[in-house]
Design a protein around this nucleic acid. Structure first.
Length: 293
DNA sequence: GGCCAGGTGCGTA
DNA sequence: TACGCACCTGGC
């Protein structure tokens, strides 16, 4: 795999930027359009730029002719934060090879098509608490409203970003202190008690996200998260996949049920994809939800 | 004006 | 254990 390398860095209109080459098969648009993250939106009209907030930093990503531009970051920030966030240190060519030969011929044909249309998607490594909380909000909900609720939560209870114009995702402590009624007032509906329960348990250390992050016992991680009210297998798996870097997590939602019904006699069996099950899942999900739609 | 959304908890057999 | 149904709200 070609390793990402910094081309140059500088400032435009007083804002830092860094340009990076060697990013391989990476699509900003697909990565941020595939439903894994709710705080980024398309910026401008080139179709290749998104802006948002992650790890309390306002940032935008843009790809053009194989060059990634990160605005709001310098070379140091790129290597310390965004390289890992975007999973640019992961060899997706190798993963694509693995997931397209894991099943029988028929299954491999489906996976090859899914990998083809999804080419460029990277599983983000988001903040664990943000991912957990966001996917609690996502249940029985649609993406525009999920984004709206999360934006309201950030504005009300998140620390301001450096430029003072945006807000970080609120800490578990901030949401726990806000209380269930205040969270309900953000139009979260029946999820208010779930968010509140999650925030309290995490803030109190009753659920230790760091130890889940460091654990290799996937089933135990899932069980631990499912102690939270309103966290079932789907939400737990999304949090583990998108927030805890556990690519073996295989969230099954209505779209994945459609995939199974439409393209497979039974299954696919996620175990066959091993530690890349979550990435295979994301490819199948993306094909069904955003391409076949 | 309804239906429904990237689920989950709870009550019922 | 295995279903079916309610759930806040607002986008379409």
């Amino acid at each position: 795999m070609e390793a990402p390398y910094v081309i140059d860095e500088g400032k435009r209109d007083g804002v830092k930027y860094v340009r990076v080459g060697g990013v391989g098969n990476f699509s900003v648009f697909k990565t941020f359009d595939c439903g894994q993250c709710f705080r980024f939106d398309p910026d401008g009209d080139d179709g290749n730029t998104v802006s948002g907030v992650a790890f309390g930093k306002k940032v935008s990503f843009s790809d053009r002719d194989g060059t990634l531009t990160v605005t709001g970051a310098g070379a140091d920030d790129f290597s310390s934060t965004w390289l890992r966030y975007l999973s640019l240190d992961v060899d997706y060519d190798e993963i694509d090879r693995a997931v397209t030969c894991a099943l029988d011929d028929e299954g491999n044909a489906v996976m090859s098509r899914a990998a083809e249309v999804s080419r460029g998607i990277r599983i983000l490594r988001q903040d664990p608490w943000e991912a957990l909380c966001s996917f609690i909000v996502s249940q029985n909900n649609n993406i525009p409203r999920i984004k709206k609720i999360i934006a309201a939560m950030c504005e009300a209870y998140g620390e301001k970003t450096e430029d003072g114009l945006s807000h970080a995702f609120p800490t578990a402590r901030a949401l726990a202190d806000a209380g269930e009624e205040a969270i309900f007032a953000l139009r979260t509906g029946f999820r208010a008690k779930y968010i509140s329960d999650a925030a309290r348990r995490v803030a109190d250390g009753e659920i230790d996200l760091d130890s889940i992050f460091g654990s290799d016992d996937f089933a135990a991680c899932e069980a631990e998260l499912m102690k939270i009210r309103g966290v079932g297998p789907k939400v737990a798996d999304c949090a583990l996949l998108f927030g805890f870097g556990k690519t073996e997590a295989y969230p099954v939602d209505v779209w994945m049920k459609k995939v199974a019904a439409r393209h497979f006699k039974e299954g696919p069996d996620p175990k066959k994809f091993g530690k890349y099950a979550g990435i295979a899942q994301q490819y199948l999900f993306y094909m069904e939800r955003y391409v076949n739609g």
